[in-house]
């Protein structure tokens, strides 16, 4: 399998406080990868380095072998789609207009029938075709999240980045959204990287899990291998019981461990 995304020796500081220390990882095409770790462990920072919102102090990030430092913003927006948390928009816009923004990397000013067609198809894929002309701000949290994923897919990217895609969603939408992400990744042979808090959802939908702890990679691998009592205890400071659920590790938290260090 071909390597889609490579992060090599990336470090980042907020002022003098290090947030990422020498992160190295590579992700193959067709993989859904979850970034897990406690608050402040560097999940969001890593995502912001990959989407070039932040500039790493050291190291390089390669998408399909190309250094993102050397790619202009417009070029990068064709390779990389970012899905933020589903906050309301500042000014009114319809769902169709929101998703159409995903075609911005390809349009100068006029939108072509192909752009509209692409948006139309993606809206159907997401089950949003019935609300194409509704106001984005009128949608529920789950529908908004779907619309934002639709926008990222409209960019036809190689890499999808998610900042806690399930944090505001109800049970049904959590499963739907992650199911859509997984099938899109497999079908288009792209990659998805998601900052996640819910370890059980990460376990169920990821091909690979990256444990981040204090800006460093603590462990990386298949859910079955890395979701262990020991790892979770070390990274989160929580005692857990691991059971099995549909063949994946299922985590049942017990209690915070007694303070150490």
């Amino acid at each position: 399998m071909a390597i889609k995304l490579k992060v090599r020796g990336v470090s980042f500081n907020y002022g003098s406080r290090p947030a990422l220390k020498n992160i190295t990882l590579s992700i193959n095409e067709g993989e859904v990868v979850s970034l897990v770790g406690p608050n402040g462990s560097g999940k969001t920072t890593l995502i912001k380095c990959i989407n070039k919102v932040l500039k790493p102090k050291q190291g390089t990030i390669l998408i399909k072998g190309r250094d993102i430092k050397k790619i202009k913003l417009k070029g990068l927006s064709r390779l990389l789609g970012y899905v933020p948390q589903s906050a309301a928009h500042f000014f009114p816009s319809t769902v169709f207009d929101t998703v159409l923004l995903g075609r911005k990397p390809y349009v100068n000013w006029r939108i072509s029938p192909r752009d509209k067609e692409t948006v139309s198809q993606i809206l159907s894929l997401m089950g949003l075709e019935g609300m194409a002309l509704r106001q984005f701000n009128e949608l529920s949290g789950g529908e908004r999240q779907k619309a934002l994923i639709a926008r990222a897919l409209a960019q036809e990217p190689q890499v999808l980045l998610f900042d806690e895609p399930t944090s505001n969603l109800d049970l049904r939408h959590q499963l739907e959204v992650l199911g859509i992400v997984k099938s899109a990744v497999k079908k288009k042979e792209i990659v998805a990287i998601m900052a996640m808090h819910d370890l059980n959802l990460a376990s169920r939908f990821s091909d690979k899990i990256i444990f981040l702890c204090k800006g460093k990679i603590h462990d990386i691998g298949e859910p079955r291998r890395v979701l262990t009592r020991e790892n979770i205890r070390r990274v989160y400071g929580v005692d857990v019981i691991i059971s099995k659920n549909l063949g994946n590790p299922h985590i049942i938290p017990i209690a915070p461990t007694a303070a150490e260090e």
């Binding site: 919102v53 990389l80 906050a87 928009h89 923004l101 911005k104």
Partner: peptide, 15 residues
Amino acid sequence: NAMASGGDEVATTLG
């Protein structure tokens, strides 16, 4: 449009 609806971070990733 990108800046007004999504904020700077999203607009940046839209190029």
